[in-house]
C-alpha cells in the first residue's frame, strides 16, 4: 500500500537519509525513534507537506501524482491540533463536509458523542487529549484507506488510548486498510503494531515484523568477561551498571544463558545507546 524508496530530506541542521520501508495492506506499522530522529519529517514527506528526494508510492502511485480524491484516501493526524482555537466541532464538521468527498457526518458526530466531546464549545476550551480526539475522528470520518498518525495517542489518558487503539484495530481488520503511526508511547505500538520501523538520526535502523523483533532479541545480565565470549555482531546494545552489565542480544547467540524477553522500549533504548557509543 505504502512504499518509501530512498527518501531523503536535507535541512541545514538535520538530514533524513535514504529512508526505505514498506507498509503492506491490512497492516499497522509503528514508527519509533527518539525526539528529533526524523519521524515527523518522514510522515510529512508522505503527506506531501514537505519537498523531498526519493520516491514515495501510495496505492501503487507516486504520492505527488495522486489526485485530490485519491489523496483523501489518506487520513492524517499531525502531532499538533490542526484546527483554529476559535472553531467549534460544528464548524469543523462544516469545513470537512465541503472538503472531503466521502465525508460521513453521522459517523463523525457518533464518534464525538461516544467520547463526550462538546459540540458547541470552542476548541480553545478543550484539553490536549480532546483536541487530539477531534483530529483522529476527523481523519476516520472520511473513510480513508490509510491512516498516517503522528503522535496521535500522546496526551490521551490510558482509558481513551485503549479505546482508540480498539478503533484503529477495527479500522485494519478487513485487511484492506493500513496504519502508519509514530508514537513515543511504545506500549501502544507494542499492543497494536504488526511491524516496527526504528529511525535514529534520520536513518532507518531496522524495519521488521514486531513479533520477529521481540522473538529475535533477549536481555541477558552478565559480566564483562562473559560479554567477550558473545559474538559482537549479535549484540544490539550494552548497558553498564556498577556491578555488572545488561545486554540486548540475539537469542540464538546466548542459547545457554539465562535471559529475559525484551519489550519495544528495551530494543529502542539499547539500539539508541549502541549508536551513541559508536559516535
Amino acid at each position: 500500500m505504502l512504499r518509501l524508496q530512498h527518501v531523503s530530506k536535507n535541512y541545514c541542521d538535520f538530514l533524513l537519509n535514504d529512508i526505505s520501508f514498506e507498509l503492506p495492506e491490512g497492516m499497522i506499522m509503528g514508527l519509533i525513534g527518539e525526539n528529533g530522529a526524523g519521524k515527523t519529517t518522514c510522515l510529512s514527506a508522505i503527506l506531501s507537506s514537505i519537498h523531498y528526494e526519493g520516491k514515495i508510492t501510495l496505492f501503487n502511485k507516486n504520492v505527488q501524482d495522486l489526485s485530490m480524491i485519491e489523496k483523501q484516501d489518506i487520513g492524517s493526524v499531525m502531532d499538533e491540533n490542526c484546527f483554529s482555537d476559535h472553531l467549534t466541532i460544528t464548524d469543523i464538521e462544516k469545513i470537512c463536509r465541503s472538503l472531503f468527498v466521502n465525508w460521513d457526518q453521522s459517523l463523525f458526530f457518533q464518534y464525538c458523542n461516544d467520547h463526550n466531546l462538546p459540540i458547541k464549545k470552542k476548541i480553545k476550551e478543550f484539553s490536549k487529549g480532546m483536541k487530539m480526539k477531534i483530529n483522529i475522528f476527523t481523519a476516520l470520518s472520511h473513510h480513508p484507506k490509510c491512516l498516517i498518525l503522528d503522535e496521535a495517542t500522546s496526551g490521551l489518558d490510558p482509558v481513551a488510548r485503549d479505546e482508540l487503539l480498539e478503533v484503529f484495530y477495527d479500522f485494519v481488520k478487513d485487511g484492506k486498510h493500513s496504519i502508519l503511526m509514530s508514537s513515543h508511547i511504545l506500549s501502544d505500538i507494542e499492543k497494536i503494531a504488526d511491524s516496527i520501523t526504528y529511525i535514529s538520526q534520520g536513518e532507518v535502523i531496522f524495519s521488521e515484523p514486531k513479533d520477529d523483533l521481540l522473538e529475535k532479541y533477549v536481555i541477558v545480565r552478565c559480566t564483562e568477561d562473559l560479554l567477550k565470549e558473545i559474538d559482537e555482531s549479535k549484540v544490539l546494545g550494552v548497558r553498564r551498571y556498577g556491578y555488572g552489565i545488561e545486554i540486548c542480544v540475539e537469542k540464538q547467540a546466548v542459547k545457554e544463558m539465562k535471559s529475559e524477553s525484551v519489550t519495544l522500549d528495551d530494543v529502542m533504548v539499547f539500539a539508541s545507546r549502541a549508536r551513541k557509543e559508536k559516535r
Partner: peptide, 9 residues
C-alpha cells in the same frame, strides 16, 4: 492548518 489542508488533498 495549511499542512492539514495539503494532506487532505
Amino acid at each position: 492548518m495549511e499542512k492539514w489542508m495539503i494532506a487532505s488533498g
